[in-house]
Structures are given as C-alpha cells and as structure tokens.
C-alpha cells in the first residue's frame, strides 16, 4: 500500500532523511519510531504530498506522491503534528469544509460528517469553536478530518503528542479501532505506543532506517538468543559449570552472588526453551531453585541496541521509558 524507495530530503545544507526505504502492507498499522529530529515529520510530509522529496520515490496505492499527487491525495487522510486547525470555525462547519474540499458529494456530506464525528466521539462538540476545545478534543477533530473521504491510507504525525495520559489512551484506542479498514502509518517517539498500537515498526535514527519489521521479528533480529534468569542456592562456580552442560545453552553470565546463592542469565539459542531442563538439573543436584524466568527482550532494548554507540545514552533519554507512561497502559 505504501512503498518508499531511497527517499532523501535536504533542507539547504541539512539532510533530514537519507535513503529511507520501507513498505507498509494493506490494512496494517505501522509505527514510525525515532527520537526527536530523526526525520519522522519530514517523511510524513513527503508521504502526504505536502512537500517534495530531494531524491527517491514514494508510492501510495501504486501512485507516485510527486507526479500523481492528486491521485494520492484523494486516497490519504493526513494528521500533521499538533493537529493544525482553524480556531475560529465551529467543529461541524470545519468538517463540512474538509468534506467539501475532499470532494464528498453534496448530498452525502452531512451524513459523512456526522459519521466521523460519531467515530471520534465529538458529536457533542459540533457547535463549539475549535479554538475553545481541549487539546484532546482538537486531536480528535484532526483525526475526524483525516477520516473524511474514506481514505485508504492514514498518515499521522505524533498523534498523541502533548496529550494527558487519559487522552493518550483514548486516542490510541481510537487509532487501534481503525485497523483493518485503513492502512495506517503513524510516527511517534514513544516506545510503548508502538507496542500498544502498531503491528509493525520502522525505526528511524538521524534520517536513516535502522531496523524494521514486526516487534517479534525485530527482537529476534537484534537479539538472536533468548535469555533466562535463574537463581540457585549453591556456589556460583559449580552451578555455572552445570548450567553450561544443558543442551542448547550458549552462554552463562553470573549476575550476583551472595551468602551461598547466585543468580545468572542463561543465553540459549532461539527456539530452545531451556527452562524445563534447567529446573530438572537444579533439582536433581538437590540445590534450592530460588528463581527461574524468561527475560523478555522489549522493543526498548531493541531500540537502545540499534541506536547504539555513543548516541545510546542520549537516545534513551529522549525516548520515554515504559515506566514513565505506565499509568497509560
């Protein structure tokens, strides 16, 4: 549905995106993840036909965003960053304007506007001036205008930025409800958002794509081994040797030792669930098994790994951690 090939954009001397390539399958929701300044908005602006690229191509529904822009524009709904709207227009009048400019036939207009207002839960606000609405409601109006004209593809730039946790949860649920009927690409700098809302992920950093795929694919790609944490009430050296003897185990790392107990992280090749074997081994030696669990590789760890090197620290800061938005979940 969306095919991007070696897209490049320079703003004067600044290269905002460089050789960006990816595809988005019909009916999926894909998250375009990256820290601030990574080039997310730039890519969205090109996909939405607002801005021309410096190089490369992008096609939506088979049409080129530059040379067949009108065809593309008829098929997309765009929600720019911060949902720019006209504060002096009432909600319903604004949506009627958008419906008309998108070419919704006169007779169908009233119904279509009512429908998108219903879908975005803004029917009660239809007579209010947009400027008098809260940020959360304005975002919904922005989403409603994107939905007008039944676009196949929705392009949303940071749809939850600047909202409070409750509004964020509502907008995410709303976007999630669009899956299937529309192909969605949304940009975000918030990791958990991708896990919660999206089927696939594209990670962009400093204008380049650094990883893409489904979340589990990314985890496998970046972490080829699975990890198990285990704590045993026995001397570290003896346990380590024993653990290495279990089939499938590749590496054992001692985490901590204290008063006769030791904890380890056991790395095994993917597809091997070694937890059963580890438990049997420990009990057969009559060691107390204090703890045993799979260590999940989160998208966050993937993100930190791919955005590695000296930037790792700075990127981890600019990306909100799951705990920071935990109340949203």
């Amino acid at each position: 549905m969306i095919e991007v090939d070696r897209l490049t954009k320079h703003y004067g001397p600044v290269t905002a995106v460089q050789d960006v390539s990816f595809t988005v399958e019909k009916g999926t929701i894909v998250g375009f993840l990256g820290p601030n300044g990574a080039g997310k908005s730039t890519t969205m602006k090109i996909l939405s036909c607002f801005m021309a690229a410096s190089g490369g191509t992008a096609r939506i529904a088979g049409f080129d965003v530059f040379s067949q822009s009108m065809e593309v524009r008829r098929r997309i709904g765009y929600l720019p960053e911060n949902a720019p709207l006209y504060p002096d227009l009432p909600v319903a009048a604004y949506l009627d304007f958008v419906a008309e400019i998108k070419g919704v036939p006169r007779r169908a207009r009233r119904g279509k506007v009512a429908e998108v207002m219903e879908r975005c839960f803004i029917t009660d606000m239809q007579r209010r001036l947009i400027g008098k609405l809260s940020k959360g409601y304005r975002q919904r109006v922005g989403l409603a205008q994107a939905l007008l004209g039944d676009p196949e593809v929705l392009i949303m730039d940071e749809p939850t930025i600047g909202l409070d946790p409750k509004q964020i949860a509502e907008i995410r649920a709303l976007i999630r409800s669009l899956a299937g009927q529309h192909t969605v690409i949304l940009s975000t700098h918030i990791l958990p958002e991708v896990s919660m809302v999206c089927d696939g992920v594209i990670i962009i950093h400093r204008g380049r794509i650094v990883a893409q795929g489904t979340q589990s694919e990314l985890v496998e790609q970046v972490f080829p081994t699975s990890r198990v944490a285990i704590e045993v009430g026995a001397p570290a050296e003896a346990v380590e040797v024993a653990l290495l003897g279990v089939p499938g185990v590749l590496r054992v790392a001692v985490q901590e030792t204290r008063d006769g107990a030791a904890s380890f992280v056991v790395e095994a090749s993917r597809g091997h669930d070694v937890r059963g074997d580890l438990a049997r081994l420990v009990t057969s030696r009559a060691w107390p098994l204090l703890e045993l669990h799979q260590v999940g590789m989160s998208l966050e760890e993937v993100f930190i790994r791919v955005v590695a090197g000296e930037e790792a620290a700075e990127s981890a800061e600019s990306v909100e951690t799951p705990t920071a938005t935990a109340e949203v979940a």
């Binding site: 036909c49 607002f50 524009r73 720019p80 400019i101 070419g103 205008q145």
Partner: peptide, 10 residues
C-alpha cells in the same frame, strides 16, 4: 500550520 494540511487536500 493549517496550510500544510490544506496543501494535502485534493
């Protein structure tokens, strides 16, 4: 920023 949106309509 409304021009950005306006310029993406057909």
């Amino acid at each position: 920023g409304t021009l950005e949106l306006l310029l993406t309509y057909p």
